[in-house]
Amino acid sequence: MCPTLLLESIKQERGIISAQQFENLSQFLGNNHKDTAQWLLTQIQPWAVAPISEFQVAALVHARNHQGEEFYAAGVNVELPHCGLESAVHAEQTALHNAWLNGACELLHLYVSATPCGYCRQFINEFCADTGLEISIGEVEATLSELLPLAFGPSDLGVSERILAAGAQTTAKGASELLQQHLQLSYAPYSGGQAALMLSMGEQHFYGRYIENAAFNPSFHPLLAALSQVALLGQGIDFKAIDRVSLAELDSLKSHQDSTEAMVRRLAPQARFQYHCANSNAAAVNT
């Protein structure tokens, strides 16, 4: 397979690479799997949106879905202009969310172009019941347990559920129905406030699922998750092209409504913001 055509295919598939595509690329390059993954990282790294730090990072997750099929999910870091640094998205977050969004139920390997920071190590830990996950950082090989000794995780808060247990792929066809499925598949074992977001650019729709973390702060905001999907088109993010943002969440002691609306008004003031809040009795919709 021609690498140029493969990279275009990866953009069209929003950062997803089939096992067969990866194998074909390895044969074309004459590389082993590790070197092929590293080559892909160098090609994907320029897709990062880093106007503040100018430090581009790429990540690649080797995963398996419920059908036993292996695939690779790419990720890059994303920084939002004129927003707080707490809104920055790490490449590992983008890649893990991308793998999960596409049905991953098991992580086999993680490749990154730069050493994962402590924030990312905590985020990765939420995905892994087994901290033996192998992580390649350039030529360095390590396990998650080596990078995050004495880890604090879900079990410390009495939670046995893991994100990938809810790794089922969506089946709905319509945009609104898909948003509801992503809401149901989101991960919020600590607050119960499941959430998902749909970001629309004309006929294109990008989805972000909320991901909670035992340490709370590395939790992944659904708007940031959706924006990370836009970045995987490899064209940057055209905020002026965003025409609608729809947030759906379950009523709980936490809410993304105010923070989402504030970021939308800052980044894409022309976009229509829709909010859907549901409880056990009824669903309320405010636009």
Score class of each variant (00 low, 15 high):
241 A>L: 10
225 A>P: 12
141 E>P: 02
36 T>Q: 05
13 E>H: 11
235 Q>T: 15
104 A>G: 11
158 G>M: 00
156 D>Q: 03
9 S>D: 00
184 Q>R: 13
125 N>V: 05
202 G>F: 06
99 A>E: 12
185 L>I: 03
234 G>N: 10
63 A>T: 08
80 L>W: 07
75 G>Q: 02
235 Q>I: 11
268 A>R: 00
11 K>A: 00
210 Y>F: 14
169 Q>Y: 10
82 H>G: 09
142 A>K: 07
58 A>W: 01
217 N>F: 15
19 A>E: 13
66 H>Q: 13
8 E>C: 00
102 N>S: 14
77 N>A: 05
148 L>E: 01
246 S>F: 14
160 S>H: 07
3 P>T: 01
232 L>M: 04
34 K>E: 11
6 L>I: 07
268 A>C: 15
258 D>Y: 14
160 S>A: 15
113 S>D: 06
66 H>L: 15
146 E>K: 02
111 Y>V: 07
170 T>N: 10
16 I>V: 11
66 H>N: 13
183 L>E: 04
93 Q>A: 13
142 A>M: 05
233 L>Y: 12
228 S>D: 12
86 E>R: 14
76 V>H: 02
112 V>F: 10
161 E>Y: 07
66 H>E: 15
201 M>K: 12
166 A>L: 14
54 E>Q: 15
167 G>I: 03
5 L>F: 04
123 F>V: 09
41 L>F: 04
212 E>P: 13
128 C>T: 12
185 L>R: 12
19 A>N: 11
209 R>C: 09
157 L>F: 13
242 I>M: 11
59 A>D: 01
47 W>I: 08
140 V>S: 09
77 N>W: 03
5 L>S: 02
204 Q>E: 15
200 S>Y: 04
156 D>R: 00
130 D>V: 04
148 L>V: 08
146 E>F: 01
267 L>G: 01
117 C>F: 09
98 N>H: 13
222 P>N: 00
270 Q>I: 05
228 S>A: 14
22 F>T: 00
34 K>F: 09
34 K>N: 10
279 N>Y: 05
130 D>W: 00
86 E>Q: 15
261 E>K: 11
140 V>F: 12
38 Q>R: 09
249 E>F: 08
26 S>K: 06
128 C>H: 00
172 A>M: 07
29 L>C: 01
47 W>M: 07
195 A>N: 10
47 W>C: 06
126 E>W: 02
232 L>P: 07
226 A>L: 13
79 E>P: 12
107 L>V: 11
265 R>K: 15
180 Q>R: 10
104 A>R: 08
92 E>N: 12
80 L>A: 06
235 Q>W: 07
178 L>H: 09
64 R>D: 08
39 W>D: 03
144 L>N: 03
273 F>M: 06
153 G>E: 12
25 L>K: 00
125 N>L: 09
5 L>W: 01
48 A>D: 10
35 D>F: 03
16 I>C: 08
61 V>F: 05
